[in-house]
Design a protein around this nucleic acid. Structure first.
Lengths: 194, 194
DNA sequence: ACCTGAACACCGTTCAAGT
DNA sequence: ACCTGAACACCGTTCAAGT
């Protein structure tokens, strides 16, 4: 265990700057078509020593986890926006939010890399944001059900599962795969029907 | 590059036996809840030297790839069975085959590990079986479409994509996730409707 | 208070020596 | 013809020395 930064007190200006440089370097490297990104690479591109990377992020998983955490932050904003629009059709509000979250993943190769090639620790790092996500999607699901537009067997807890499935379809190794098509299929399955 | 076995000539009896022991050891170790399986571990459990593992499989990806290859062999048997049953309802034939293949993945933690944590090379190893899979599923899809039971926008090439999504739901890290539920949702979406 | 980078540990892979 | 396992290379992580 290295000399991790104390998250309580405010960072010194150079530390705050380094943290940003590291995150930015990680994004660029994870997004660029891999030949396996190393911590040394991240440090070099950020213009800092490896030790500094470890001072900000206890290990590689935490570095990846930060990308996941930030993206869940965006997911939550998206769901909150959908909730705020009281007049909208409840099913379309949910569907639209899911389309937006999926599209944001499709645009973010770095976080996709973190999602798939990081393990348990990556998600542990984003636990708080993931809880918020569950809360927000429960409300959206409840509204759509109340409107009779969502099939009753569908639960809010199914959302991370199906979205994870849709994410699996965003895979540069399979250029034929169409995640939008996959998502529409799932939405079709979710819709209440005879 | 080590002294890879010549795949043309038949193996010596001890080599054939070792190959089986290595595969079996790999299965057991990949299936057991990870602390990262190493090639040395596989060799030790199989009772051979590491060099022997590399003699049979050029690298770790190839070892994982062999598990994937074998499972696709099973998938293809399943699809062939569904095709052979001419009297069956075409949509249910397809749906049943997908349920069987998914269930076999749910029972096989080792191959799931290979699917998710292996990279490009793992699938390259199984290319031939995957082509056969595409061919078989095209026929099943064509029949279900001809019967008017499958929505016209669904293509045979979508099957690996959606099954990959279902596989993502079979994840011990998320005990709440229900892959059967996910698959039924997708099947519901696939079905022809108004 | 934070940074640096050489050193360490771990694990995939090879290869010289064996039967 | 096939096997063995010590040795090598690579990469995640640490820590003693710096500012």
């Amino acid at each position: 265990m290295s000399e991790l930064l104390n998250p309580e007190r405010p960072m010194r200006a150079d530390a705050r700057r380094n943290r940003l440089l590291i995150l930015q370097a990680a994004c660029e490297l994870f997004a660029s078509d891999r030949p396996e990104v190393q911590m040394d690479d991240v440090a070099r591109r950020a213009g800092v020593g490896v030790g500094t990377v470890y001072r900000h992020f206890p290990d590689k998983q935490a570095l990846m986890g930060e990308l996941v955490r930030e993206r869940f932050g965006f997911f939550n904003e998206t769901l909150a926006d959908a909730l705020a629009d009281e007049g909208a059709d409840p099913f379309e509000a949910l569907a639209g939010a899911l389309r937006t979250t999926a599209a944001s993943m499709a645009d973010d190769a770095a976080t996709r890399f973190a999602f798939t090639s990081g393990g348990e620790g990556v998600f542990a790092h984003a636990a708080e944001e993931m809880d918020a996500f569950t809360g927000l999607s429960s409300t959206l699901v409840a509204r759509a059900k109340a409107a009779g537009e969502l099939m009753p067997e569908f639960e809010a807890e199914d959302i991370p599962m199906v979205m994870c499935g849709v994410c699996a379809a965003i895979d540069k190794r399979h250029p034929g795969w169409d995640w939008r098509h996959h998502l529409e299929l799932v939405l079709r399955g979710m819709r209440a029907g005879p």
